Amino acid sequence: MTKKICWILTEGMAGTENQCLGLAEALGLDPEIKRLRPRWPWRWLPVGLWLAPLVAQNPTASSLAPPWPDVLISAGRKSVPVALAIKKKSGARVFAVHLLNPYVAPVRFDLVATPRHDGLEGDNVIVTEGALTRITKARLDDALDAHGGRLAALPRPRLAVLLGGASKHFKFTERAAGELALLLRAMVTETGGSLMITVSRRTGADVVARLRAGLEGVPMEIWEGEGANPYFAYLAAADAIVVTNDSVSMACEAATTGKPLYVFALEGTSKKFDAFHENLCARGIARPFDGSFEKWTYEPLMDTERVAQAVRKRLGERMDEPTGERQK
């Protein structure tokens, strides 16, 4: 694909922004990230009431002015009216891709990619199993080169443990941390292996402290946010992976590796998250974590490349369209 100018338009949340970056990287694009910071009165209004959405951006935030990009990748509800306004201002020249449910008619975008658990369908909708990721073999190999010497000292099998935290639907309590520690210790005792544990921004200090206490003496490494993040190295060095069920992104990143994936349930529930994890289990990708260690194989998730292929195909078709057809 000819090198094109790409913008990423989000509300600044790391999870959705990473999905956009994953798609841009899969397309071979070097995107410029535009983070929305709506000013008064827009920031207090539902997005359906946003008149002149391009004027909503705070003047001190990312500029949303010509020259317009060739490809616009947006995610998040507040990005929807802004992305559509950019497409209109460009005379429909901008190829607009939206990730996740836009909550408007999908046909208003050139392409929409949304997880199966969102239940959205349409001629220009690509249904994914979950979130897009930035996981590639090259990225994992590079991370292992940077951290592999240190991690090689940990006995195998190595279990990568990806921790989430409190959210709208889930609670990561000290009680849950204690239960997880017992299961992890049981697995290490059974296998003679080790743990590589990484926290997220939502992981509470009390949870980490409870895990450390419950895993005292267990061969492990815990990354708590200091120094270079070994997240990708943990995925590369792991023989199996455990994720907490409060994150779709972490599970999808783990499932992209093709390695056995265990899910540890936190307190709480979410219809969409439950449907997502049930689908992973039904497809033979994931299993509930009960402290035992098993090996199995499955076809790794390739949602990011699948969406990238759809974008390339539609961009190729678009180049053959008369300009007037794009503006209809």
Results as ranks from 00 to 15, higher is better:
A205H: 14
A205R: 15
A205I: 13
A205D: 12
D206C: 06
V207N: 03
V208M: 05
V208Q: 01
A209C: 06
A209I: 05
A209F: 07
A209V: 09
A209M: 06
A209P: 11
R210V: 10
R210C: 04
L211T: 09
L211I: 10
L211H: 12
R212F: 07
R212C: 09
R212S: 08
A213K: 15
A213P: 00
G214E: 08
L215N: 11
L215T: 11
E216F: 06
E216D: 15
G217K: 14
G217E: 01
V218N: 02
P219Q: 03
P219F: 08
M220F: 01
E221G: 00
I222Y: 06
I222H: 04
W223Q: 00
W223H: 12
W223R: 06
G225S: 04
G225E: 03
G225Q: 02
E226N: 12
E226W: 10
E226H: 13
G227S: 09
G227D: 10
G227L: 10
G227K: 12
G227E: 07
G227P: 06
A228E: 12
N229F: 08
N229E: 04
P230M: 13
Y231F: 14
F232E: 01
A233D: 00
Y234Q: 02
Y234V: 02
A237T: 08
A238S: 14
A238G: 11
A238D: 06
A238Y: 09
D239C: 07
D239R: 06
D239A: 06
I241L: 05
N245P: 04
N245F: 05
D246F: 13
D246K: 14
S247W: 01
V248H: 08
S249A: 15
S249T: 12
S249W: 01
